[in-house]
Every structure is written in structure tokens, then in C-alpha cells.
């Protein structure tokens, strides 16, 4: 394979809270290649959002990246000064958040906000930036781009806001798009359209995408490779078809089995017992062992490393078939 666009090596992001050190991301490594859609899937509190924020170095206080490397096209982003990093954000790596209302500034029109990044990053003059904004609004298939550009965020529907967010994010033609639950706050029919739009734009502009989600449906629909996160660690990583056809880690298998599909109505569903651990004092050894039906003595003491079980399919579990 070619060189990866983004390589994350042993990334550790901790939050220093008054209750203790929260190891939200604890030694995560993966690569994202050109043109690919890479999904990170996991339940709430597994550290997936922190992971995305770490990549563009926007971890909120009291969080801090305490170790590892984030190598983007040969440079380690963690070593760049903040001023250089600012040039990367938006221009090279852009991010879409779950709630578009919070990420759009309510006092400016969306046209203005879409026009702004090119003015900052490319010194584009205001008039042509505005023309481009209108063009982009059309590109994300919002009706009447001229009119929409003059709208303020609050008059738009959730779907339209997320579309403007996408337009804003692609205005500088980034190479990598980070999308953190981009469709969680919208209805299914709108979700379908947004995803379709994202995938089309991604294909057209040859971008790579990292999609953070809790929804296995979305993973199956759009991504090439998937990483399953549990309690701050990647437990399984591989091509999406392979992972769905042949999930190896008991956690991945559990998540897939407990979905209400392939069952008769009202038939007992498979259940993963217990709850996700808190990340201040995660269980020793494999973090999943207290909930794992196959846990062995070894799992309680040693942490299983991520190892290749099939070509390109990695699993962190001692139990290999």
C-alpha cells in the first residue's frame, strides 16, 4: 500500500479532573490512507470524540495529549507550534461536529462564514470568496444558494445547517475530513441525504475521511476500514466487510449480536453484561475482561496487544480462533 496520509502512533490523551486522571485515549495507533473512509466506532465514553479532537489538537481543558505521534504527510502535528497548526486546521484537516448549531456562529450569515476560511488561508478577496461560498452552497445541494447565503443559522433546519457546515469545511479543499457523529442530530431521511452528499463530495475531491460514530449501520454503509474502540483502546481494526463477516473480538461480536436484527420479534436479545468501565481506573489486563464471556486468567493480568489475525485484520484479544 502507499504511504498513509495520516498515521497515529500510540496516542495518549488524558483529562486531569478533580476525580482523577481520565485516560480517554490510551495508546491508540492507526493509519488513514488516501481516498479512504476510516470509521471509529464505539459506545459513548470510549474516547472516540477525544481521539478526533486530538488529531486537530483541539482537546478542551483539562484534557491534554500526553504521548504519541500524529504524523500527517510526514510531519508530526504534535511537534508543530500553534501558529503552524492553525494553518493545518481547515486547510489540510477539517472537522464536522455533531451539533451544527453550536459550531455555526449565530450572528453571521452562513455565506459569510463559508467565505471566511479561504480569506484566512488563501488571502482570497472578499468578493470572490463570497461568490465561491454561493457556489459551495449550491454544491451541498441547498436550494436557492443566493438566498441561503444571506440566511442566519437559526432560520435553517438541522439538515440545512449541517449542509452549510459541510460547505464551510470543504471551502479550503482539505485533504482529510474528520466527522464526529455528523448525522446523529438529524432525522433518518435527512441522514441518508447528508451521508450521500458527504460520500459524493469525498469522491469528487479525493478526500480522506475519518468518521466517528456509535452507529454500526453507518459504519456498514459508508466506510472502508473500521476501528472498534472500547475504554480508550482500539480492540479490533480491519476492512469493514471482513470485520462484519468475521468479527473476532468478543466486544465487537457482542455489539453486533445485541442489535435487534436477525431475530424474531420479542425474542430474547443477546446482551453484553455490565457497563463500560470508568476511565479513571480501568480494569487491569484486557479492559473488556469483566464483561467478557470468554475471559481467561491471562486476560485479567496482561493487556493483549493488537495483532494481525487475517491480512489487515487486527484484534487485541488472546482468544483467537
Amino acid at each position: 500500500m502507499t504511504d498513509p496520509l495520516l498515521r497515529v502512533v500510540d496516542l495518549k490523551t488524558y483529562y486531569r479532573t478533580s476525580a482523577g486522571l481520565v485516560r480517554a485515549v490510551d495508546g491508540v495507533s492507526f493509519e488513514v490512507y488516501k481516498d479512504e473512509t476510516f470509521c471509529v466506532v464505539g459506545e459513548s465514553g470510549c474516547g472516540k470524540s477525544t481521539l478526533a479532537l486530538s488529531i486537530i489538537r483541539l482537546v478542551p481543558y483539562p484534557g491534554e495529549i500526553v504521548g504519541g505521534k500524529i504524523i500527517y504527510r510526514g510531519t508530526d502535528l504534535l511537534k508543530l507550534p500553534e501558529s503552524e497548526m492553525r494553518k493545518i486546521r481547515g486547510k489540510e484537516i477539517a472537522m464536522i461536529f455533531q451539533n451544527p448549531m453550536n459550531s455555526l456562529n449565530p450572528v453571521f450569515t452562513i455565506g459569510f462564514q463559508i467565505a471566511e476560511p479561504p480569506v484566512i488561508h488563501f488571502n482570497m478577496d472578499g468578493r470572490s470568496a463570497w461568490r465561491r461560498a454561493v457556489e459551495l452552497i449550491g454544491k451541498v445541494r441547498m436550494p436557492d444558494p443566493e438566498v441561503r447565503a444571506r440566511n442566519y443559522p437559526h432560520v435553517l433546519s438541522g439538515g440545512m445547517r449541517q449542509r452549510s457546515m459541510i460547505a464551510m469545511m470543504i471551502s479550503c479543499e482539505p485533504k482529510l475530513l474528520l466527522a464526529d457523529e455528523p448525522t446523529t442530530s438529524v432525522d433518518v431521511t435527512v441522514q441518508a441525504q447528508l451521508l450521500n452528499l458527504l460520500m459524493n463530495i469525498k469522491r469528487e475531491r479525493r478526500m480522506s475521511m475519518v468518521l466517528i460514530t456509535h452507529n454500526f449501520g453507518l459504519v456498514a454503509e459508508v466506510c472502508n476500514r473500521v476501528a472498534v474502540m472500547y475504554a480508550g483502546k482500539i480492540v479490533e481494526l480491519g476492512p469493514v466487510r471482513e470485520v462484519f463477516r468475521n468479527p473476532v473480538h468478543p466486544y465487537t461480536r457482542g455489539l453486533m449480536k445485541c442489535l435487534p436484527i436477525g431475530t424474531k420479534r420479542k425474542e430474547q436479545l443477546y446482551v453484553i453484561p455490565g457497563q463500560p468501565p470508568n476511565l479513571i481506573e480501568p480494569p487491569p489486563g484486557c479492559r473488556f475482561h469483566p464483561r467478557c464471556p470468554h475471559a481467561m486468567e491471562k486476560c485479567k493480568k496482561e493487556e493483549p496487544p493488537l495483532t494481525e489475525v487475517e491480512p489487515n485484520h487486527y484484534v487485541a484479544c488472546y482468544l483467537r480462533r
Binding site: 440545512m160 433518518v188 431521511t189 441518508a192 449501520g217 456498514a220 454503509e221 462484519f244
Partner: peptide, 27 residues
């Protein structure tokens, strides 16, 4: 049918894009 076709299906063998043509506009 629109709702059913828009639901993400947790199986990579059957992907969206083909079923998607039914979904139009926003509520």
C-alpha cells in the same frame, strides 16, 4: 418505503447508495 430505504443497515454487503434514490427533500 422512504423511511425503510433510508435506515442505515448494519451490513456492508447491502449499501445505501443504491436504495437511496427514493429519499427527497426534508420534512
Amino acid at each position: 418505503a422512504t423511511l425503510l430505504s433510508a435506515a442505515p443497515i448494519p451490513n456492508p454487503e447491502v449499501r445505501y447508495v443504491k436504495r437511496f434514490s427514493l429519499v427527497r427533500g426534508e420534512p
